[in-house]
């Protein structure tokens, strides 16, 4: 018998927490994108775990769509990072403060 679903759910929660902490503390836009990928993977792991527990293939189909959206998001996000870098030679999000009130 496979290990209980709660083990995988706790693992996914810890992975999500690590990704969230990295997103909140790192400065480089590239690393922040990687942390977003970590959080997306944690949610994917949760979906797959529930798909197994509930015997519902819909969870795996959702993960499929999440992967497509993640690929699109990374493409556009890295395009923005390159455009920002070209303008100000830095990817640090601290220096992007034009909209500060």
């Amino acid at each position: 018998m496979n290990v209980p679903a709660s083990w995988y759910l706790i693992l996914a929660a810890v992975l999500f927490g690590i990704g969230a902490f990295g997103l909140l503390t790192r400065r480089s836009a590239l690393i922040m994108f990687m942390c977003i990928e970590l959080m997306l993977n944690a949610v994917n792991l949760t979906f797959v775990t529930f798909a197994r527990t509930l015997s519902d293939i819909g969870g795996q189909a959702t993960v499929f769509f999440v992967m497509v959206v993640a690929a699109a998001e990374v493409t556009v996000g890295l395009g923005i990072v390159v455009a920002v870098f070209r303008r100000r030679s830095s990817t640090s999000v601290d220096e992007l403060s034009e909209l500060k009130g």
Partner: peptide, 19 residues
């Protein structure tokens, strides 16, 4: 690896190829 352990074989392959 966690995907394969939970009967999501196709998603594991997509995970490696796409991600």
């Amino acid at each position: 690896i966690a995907f394969i352990a939970q009967q999501a074989d196709f998603l594991a392959a997509v995970q490696i190829i796409v991600y």
